[in-house]
Amino acid sequence: MSSVIKIENVTKIYENGALGLKDFSLDIEKGEFVFIVGQSGSGKSTFMRILLKEIEPTTGDVFIDNTELSLLKRKKVPYLRRKLGCVFQDFRLLPSKTVYENVAFAMQVVESSNRNIRRSVPQVLSLVGLHKKAKSYPDQLSGGEKQRVAIARAIINKPPILLADEPTGNLDPDTAWEIMELLKEINSRGTTVVMATHAKDIVNKMRKRVVHIENGVLISDVAEGGYDDEV
């Protein structure tokens, strides 16, 4: 099995001296579902941002789909991001666009044909269970529905990897669990899911691979683990 994400001895020290990650290595294989857990400021966000090439590691190499990120030119970054679907805690939907338009937007950006857009968007919307809300605007939706729209937008271009940064952070437990079911469904279709969270109950219940980061250091990496498992 080839690694979709491969991180080798990455250290990130911010310009103000703060430590992001310290000698961090991680392999994620295709089709895996990985939780990245740790307290706020532990380095989860640094990890995510390095994957998106928002920031550069101070030392170490990062490979995504066998592409070394430090060798990637700035102009090529958009093409990297097309391999990484992103879901955020705050949804980041465009309030002026309908649900349909928000999802279609991601396809327009990668210059898909209109025919393709018309075919794919309803499919994805029915996958996330929002096909009846296609014409609604984000502020007419509940939090869970908004996150579903965000997930639909993240997977519409069929990226090999889905990065979810605290996708359930703003949701009540029931809704959060619905989102997790959805992510599990997406994962079962072959997409690698990397989810940063500190929702203990979800992690414990899912029994997936858990990577624990504390103060920028990887302290545990357990397959089918729980939140508090130690190596």
């Binding site: 958009p78 990297l80 991001r81 992103c86 465009l94 937007f105 950006v109 990668v110 937008r153 271009n157």
Partner: peptide, 16 residues
């Protein structure tokens, strides 16, 4: 600003 930000995350090129 938000729109631009989202476009960046979805993989829009600068020129787009």
């Amino acid at each position: 600003k938000n729109e631009i930000n989202i476009m960046k995350y979805v993989g829009a090129t600068d020129w787009f």
